[in-house]
């Protein structure tokens, strides 16, 4: 009983703090639900809630296309990173070959190279390849990342040898062991890496900003910038567009919160 009574301060503090943190976001939501005439009306709640701004945003801008672009790009990158990372991590963790430690060392060293430093020469490279303003530019350079290789290699090394021995006795080769032992057993790590990669790709800003030119190739993030410039006087439309861009990532977060949290903890503290 006493313990239960002592919970109320926690609820009050946590609730109040959450409200305070989400306040800018709530005012954005409120703006998106206001018709233009009420945009500057005081109060947190819209006096006459309407979906007018959403309608306007969806008809004036190809938001569906922007969101689809982001979804396509993020999904391809996630799939690519999972595949390339698992393959490389398997070799680094399970196979014996010349230069293994050196190659793992290279992955660790590349962890230190932030994309923001290489975006300029990467842009020149992508330009030479003739990939500017295409899905190739948005996806191919990111289909592998050192963090994925690093995390999965560390994870695969924690799988007890016995599992692989059992498969080997049954005559499994490395491909079969990867498929039937390593893959199912690393599901939690893969899920976390997938969540981390997806959100990272979905939130990319600098890169799509410099490599996309045409409207059709823009991702949702860049579209937000574009809509903000176009509709600087109609903030309800800007807000509605932003909320529409937010929804998929919010949904992904709510569906896979555990994986997200694990991914951040793994990626942040590097195993």
């Amino acid at each position: 009983m006493g313990r239960r009574r002592r919970l109320w301060p926690t609820y009050l503090l946590a609730g109040g703090y959450a409200l305070l943190l989400l306040l800018p976001f709530l005012t954005l939501l409120s703006a998106s639900l206001r018709p233009e005439a009420d945009l500057y009306a005081p109060g947190l709640l819209p006096p006459r809630p309407s979906l007018e701004a959403y309608q306007e945003a969806l008809t004036r801008f190809p938001l569906g296309r922007f969101l689809l672009n982001s979804l396509l790009v993020s999904s391809l990158i996630t799939l690519g990173v999972l595949t390339t990372s698992l393959l490389a991590a398997y070799a680094l963790a399970r196979l014996r070959f010349l230069g293994r430690e050196a190659l793992f060392g290279l992955a660790v060293a590349l962890l230190l190279v932030p994309g923001e430093v290489t975006f300029l020469p990467l842009y020149l490279l992508v330009d030479r390849l003739g990939w500017l303003d295409s899905y190739l530019a948005l996806t191919v350079p990111f289909l592998a990342n050192p963090l994925g290789v690093f995390l999965l290699r560390q994870f695969l090394r924690t799988i007890p040898e016995d599992y692989f021995d059992a498969a080997r006795i049954d005559g499994a080769n490395h491909w079969q062991m990867l498929r039937h032992v390593a893959l199912p057993l690393s599901a939690p790590a893969l899920g976390a890496l997938a969540a981390l990669t997806f959100i990272g790709a979905w939130n990319m800003y600098l890169w799509p900003l410099v490599v996309t030119k045409s409207r059709e190739m823009q991702t949702a993030q860049i579209a937000v910038n574009f809509i903000l410039n176009e509709e600087v006087a109609r903030w309800n439309v800007v807000a509605a567009a932003a909320i529409l861009v937010l929804l998929p990532s919010l949904l992904a977060f709510l569906l896979a919160q555990r994986a997200f949290v694990r991914g951040i903890a793994m990626g942040g503290l590097k195993g």
């Binding site: 943190l21 939130n203 800003y205 937000v224 932003a242 861009v245 937010l246 977060f253 919160q257 997200f260």
Partner: peptide, 22 residues
């Protein structure tokens, strides 16, 4: 936890617009 961890999922562009309006 969900409310606090949520901001990891808010894209930079959306966060910026939210503050732009705030």
């Amino acid at each position: 936890r969900t409310l606090f961890f949520l901001t990891t999922a808010i894209p930079t562009a959306v966060a910026a617009v939210a503050w732009g309006w705030f």
